[in-house]
Nucleic acid binder design. Structure first.
Lengths: 250, 250
DNA sequence: AACTGGTGGTTCGAATAATGAACCAACTAT
DNA sequence: ATAGTTGGTTCATTATTCGAACCACCAGTT
């Protein structure tokens, strides 16, 4: 990994739970030397990707992010399209829904989500973090529809065990992927976050290559087989809508 | 400038007019060696900041941008707040309005804008580019309310002459800044884009430090003194609203 | 007042990673 | 075939990143 990637990885440590991070905390997280981390943070700050509080000296995500997002969305409004459709999806199924896209071989990056508000108990996965391929419904379904070469590269990296239920056995996983490809959707039960069930359907880009997934997540207690069956058609409709609106963005 | 900053600068070449850029074009723009540029692009791609079209091999802004923007806005919803208020501002004054924030010493980064739709002829500045301090209304008003030390650093870098009307004489500029600080607003006539007049009012962060500006831009033909006077109060109301909503985001 | 442990930040020799001229490979048009 | 594109790679040279040790500051303890 080059210097650039290492620096950019610092940005991925920000989340809802941790919107501001100081130098020492960064050192603690990354394990790198303080001087090194500091130099990287300074360059990110000077480029506008971080904003440093003048008083507390802590860092948070900077204005350059917003600016680039505007450029991105005004030329390829992928996110806007996704948000619209998962809003209606959420209204129909009354559960948390999100759209995530492939981000290299590390996992899926969530670009839109709608938290369910109708239930008292609801899933609160922090979608601001990268979703691993092998432990989430979205990840599994993208793996299933991905090119074999890339699947091999990803599985070669090793399978992190997030919970007791995370599937880390390669043969079973490969069988699971075949089954997912046949059925057209994936289901994951507590592999990433305990008691959370996810159902996901693949998304494709303009060249029919798998680009990501739409998923619904819910507490396992609420997601009976019947409910699941009722959600699936809605998921597929949402996926079609997003696929269609993404075709124009070549 | 370090390697990280050089790589990140590649991202700033994307704009509405140029949403996709290939390797050769990047080499042409930057003047760096092809191998160097390619390595930087690859790292940005692998980190998710660029997406490479599998067919055309051209690069465009990637999903990591959207992800970070979500994290940023869900912890510090600065942009959302800004968008709301400039929408009403736009309805009231019927001209293009935008909010830009300080991005280091290079200029201002626009984080929200509303294009005016009521007039046939309207300003179309590409707000996706960095606004220079000395040549725009937003830039001038932030300079006027910025700390002297930083002002000196910025003016030291030299003043680019964008149009025949760009003010590049230091003494006049400094006098102009004093006058702006007294009046509380700035006005710029065709200094960055010909025939465009801008009026801007400063924004402050939680420590009362100048953080950016709200501005209205219009064709000079339409912006008579009377119209200008009528716009000012609306601008100040908008600035107050944004300032207030930003206070909580320390 | 000195000590302790916590911030953020800097220095400079040593180690490492970025650099760029030359080179492929594929495609298009002449 | 030739010449001019495109994107991408190699490898010896060079310049940059790296990191142990350092400073300055602040808050609470002894």
């Amino acid at each position: 990994m080059g210097t650039i990637a290492k620096a950019l990885q610092l940005l991925s440590h920000f989340s809802n739970n941790q919107p501001e991070i100081g130098l020492s905390r960064f050192v603690q997280i990354t394990g790198d030397d303080k001087a090194t981390v500091h130099r990287r943070l300074r360059e990110l700050r000077d480029s506008g990707f971080l904003h440093q509080d003048p008083v507390s000296r802590a860092y948070r995500l900077g204005p350059a992010i917003s600016r680039l997002e505007i450029v991105k969305e005004s030329s390829f409004p992928a996110r806007r399209a996704a948000i619209e459709t998962i809003r209606t999806l959420n209204r129909e199924v009354s559960e948390t829904a999100h759209v995530s896209v492939i981000q290299g071989n590390v996992g899926l990056s969530t670009i839109a989500y709608v938290d369910d508000l109708s239930h008292g108990i609801r899933v609160h996965v922090d979608v601001n973090e990268i979703l691993p391929y092998h432990a989430t419904a979205s990840g599994l379904v993208t793996l299933a529809f991905m090119e074999d070469q890339q699947v091999d590269d990803i599985l070669k990296q090793g399978l992190n065990k997030y919970t007791a239920d995370t599937q880390t056995e390669l043969p079973q996983l490969r069988a699971n992927l075949r089954q997912i490809r046949n059925s057209g959707y994936s289901r994951s039960q507590g592999g990433f976050e305990l008691d959370v069930v996810g159902i996901a359907v693949p998304l494709f880009d303009h060249r029919k290559k798998c680009a990501g997934a739409v998923a619904v997540a819910a507490p396992s207690s609420r997601l009976t087989d019947d409910v699941q069956r009722s959600i699936l058609p809605n998921l597929k409709i949402a996926a079609n809508a997003i696929n269609e609106s993404w075709q124009g963005l070549t």
